[in-house]
Design a protein around this nucleic acid. Sequence first.
DNA 1: TTGCCGGTCAACCTTTCGATGGATGCCTCG
DNA 2: CGAGGCATCCATCGAAAGGTTGACCGGCAA
Lengths: 224, 224
Amino acid sequence: MSDNVITDSAITGSTSAPIRILLVDDHPVIRAGLRAVLDAESDLRVVADTGDPDDGVRRASAGGVDVVLMDLQFGGEMRGADATRRITERPDAPRVLVLTTYDTDTDILDAIEAGATGYLLKDAPPEDLAAAVRTAAAGRSALAPRVATRLMDRMRQPATTLSSREVEVLQLVADGRSNQQIAAHLFISQATVKSHLVHIYSKLGVDSRTAAVATAVERGLIRR
Amino acid sequence: MSDNVITDSAITGSTSAPIRILLVDDHPVIRAGLRAVLDAESDLRVVADTGDPDDGVRRASAGGVDVVLMDLQFGGEMRGADATRRITERPDAPRVLVLTTYDTDTDILDAIEAGATGYLLKDAPPEDLAAAVRTAAAGRSALAPRVATRLMDRMRQPATTLSSREVEVLQLVADGRSNQQIAAHLFISQATVKSHLVHIYSKLGVDSRTAAVATAVERGLIRR
DNA sequence: TTGCCGGTCAACCTTTCGATGGATGCCTCG
DNA sequence: CGAGGCATCCATCGAAAGGTTGACCGGCAA
């Protein structure tokens, strides 16, 4: 589980200045928990926390922060990836560790694409969290084992890549629209919708719209 | 938001013995956060916490606990309702407050049916959590406003109740099975499956299987 | 350039689904 | 007790979705 950072704690644990951490999560309980867990480490120090992603971006950009722990979803919206992007696109930006409950493919890819240094799950044991913060502060990637496994699986399965148009169609199918409604909504013919669906079925290895939705949701290709 | 427990803190806050709390949640960070938030209140005291629901039942049954804060899902499984049931079915059982991330209808009903005294969401502010614990310790129900709203909505909408057989069929539809497969799986004819689906459609106000799945998932009638 | 791929469309046929209608048994309530 | 509501079951038929073949266009890379 947590076997990749033994040397880190030995290096940064004693002499140098503590790693300064900013928490961005809209759950007060989570913030309190992370603060308690991380402040228990002598070489880590939570310098601020906020429940508002915009406020998080401001504080991260103001300096004095080494690592940002960022939640992905705020009040049901996925604003964490955007906040991460705005933080990392600046020069001398702090490292951003995404810390979320879910491990769906789209979430992971969005976060990585936004410039996150690592991706952790909230059910991780405290020592893994501290280890990941140290790893991120050193500039190296920190991925939870389950997340890493998912990424490896994705690498091995390039056939699971739907085109943006196909995702668009499939999302409408998942919303319960008929082919006719989808065609009207996208300003294309039903034949084209069917064509897309056929391609989707073959890529996902299924043979019906509901099965396609089921597997796509399972693999995190579409949201529900 | 937190307008229903002002008198409680005034009553129990100063003189009497502190309310003894047991935390049952498989997320270490959540446990640490709840402990930090609740121990900050002078009249509340977290006496134990565990990540294992069976262990939680044991500790709750051993006595010395006034209120149990119980998560519903453990490692992806919904074992919290069962643990709640086993705690509350004993005489002199402590009060159980269900504390979870989601507010789907099935979750709420399962928890209440299992004997939970209250239902809270993890994104609640700390003062609401403390207030709910005091309310539960006094033997009164504590429902988060969003949960209460959902229950009221459900009361106003009795048409949203699917029979167990209908839920069974709809769950298989959501898994991507065809009517023929569902019929074989349930040892009935396709005609019967279709009949169930028609009833489901009328109850949900939709007219296709994918739309039925979409709204049922949205309302928490089936899991995904 | 010559493919390949993504997106678009059409015609045809087969399978599945949805709508309609009807049957039985169980439970409750007047 | 009997009427009505509900869940469960089944059959038939038109409509929709799925499968196939074939085609066109634009971009992009070998």
